[in-house]
């Protein structure tokens, strides 16, 4: 490099900027009532309502809570992040950021921080509702928690990427609600959240099995099952953790490719 550039103070590193973005994103997220009501509280409300109908015994409480936690983190990652990117495009955040020396990587790191923290808060909220209302028992073995950690991480990353990719389809936050909520609600039916998957016709079950939600929920059910005998209730009769990793991994790759190809800084660019 030439001396002219070394005399200028260096710009902050992308990682540092990304963490600063994450802090700012979280601050904004938790200050927005719509987020707190729709993205964060809705799964908890659904859990309370549906749980009152479904949960008659300890086993049902464990399985139902596990599925709801799965659905909850898809709400914060897929719906929440997708909506936040659409919002950033609509309100000028992305346009402003593009005019600053902040690299795209930092924007993305900020979103990852936002999604991980909001999804953890969501999972904790649902767990607390489960414990208080349905006597949910948390797993005690390290093994189960490790499974929880990787299913959570992989699920959140895959669904975040798909959410960001789908954000290209929505021109405004008004249309975005449809773009994100329709698939989300349908997939909850197909993935064993509202109805046990084994109760669904084969065709619907197969469709649900193509998408991440089923695998996240199934992974969480394996974590919250009081014993592994519960696996017989799954459509396949086992937890299929290897396949879960495979499907979520595949969606992560698909999501990355889609984001790289479809991401737009604004609604009018080019």
């Amino acid at each position: 490099m030439t001396t002219a550039t070394t005399t200028r103070p260096a710009l902050p590193s992308p990682l540092r900027l990304g963490l600063a973005r994450g802090g700012s994103e979280l601050r904004e997220f938790f200050r927005q009532k719509e987020n707190l009501i729709f993205t964060v509280s809705l799964p908890a409300v659904l859990m309370l309502l549906l749980g009152t109908v479904y949960v008659k015994e300890a086993a049902a409480a464990q399985m139902f809570a596990a599925s709801m936690i799965g659905a909850g983190i898809i709400s914060t990652s897929f719906v929440g992040l997708g909506m936040s990117v659409v919002g950033d495009r609509e309100d000028g955040t992305l346009k402003r950021l593009r005019g600053t020396p902040m690299p795209f990587t930092s924007y993305f790191i900020g979103k990852i921080v936002l999604v991980f923290v909001s999804s953890l808060v969501e999972a904790a909220l649902l767990a607390v509702v489960g414990i208080v209302r349905f006597d949910l028992q948390l797993p005690t073995s390290l093994d189960k928690w490790l499974t929880f950690a990787w299913v959570f991480s992989l699920g959140v990353i895959a669904c975040s990427l798909i959410g960001v990719a789908l954000s290209a389809l929505a021109k405004s936050t008004k249309t975005a609600a449809g773009v994100f909520n329709l698939p989300y609600v349908v997939l909850q039916f197909l993935s064993g959240v509202f109805i046990m998957q084994s109760a669904l016709p084969e065709s619907l079950r197969t469709v649900g099995s193509f998408f991440p939600l089923k695998w996240v929920c199934q992974g969480f059910r394996s974590v919250f099952a009081l014993d592994d005998g519960y696996a017989v209730m799954e459509a396949a009769g086992s937890w299929e953790l290897g396949r879960t990793a495979l499907v979520l991994g595949a969606w992560t790759v698909i999501g990355l490719v889609l984001v790289a190809r479809t991401f737009r800084w604004s609604n009018t660019s080019r």
Binding site: L11, P12, A20, S24, R27, G92
Partner: peptide, 21 residues
């Protein structure tokens, strides 16, 4: 632009200051 609506003026200005050398 209508961004950063829930940040305070000071928070927004400080945050953006952090982008520069």
């Amino acid at each position: 632009a209508t961004d950063a609506a829930t940040l305070t003026v000071r928070e927004a200005v400080r945050h953006y200051a952090g982008y520069y050398a």
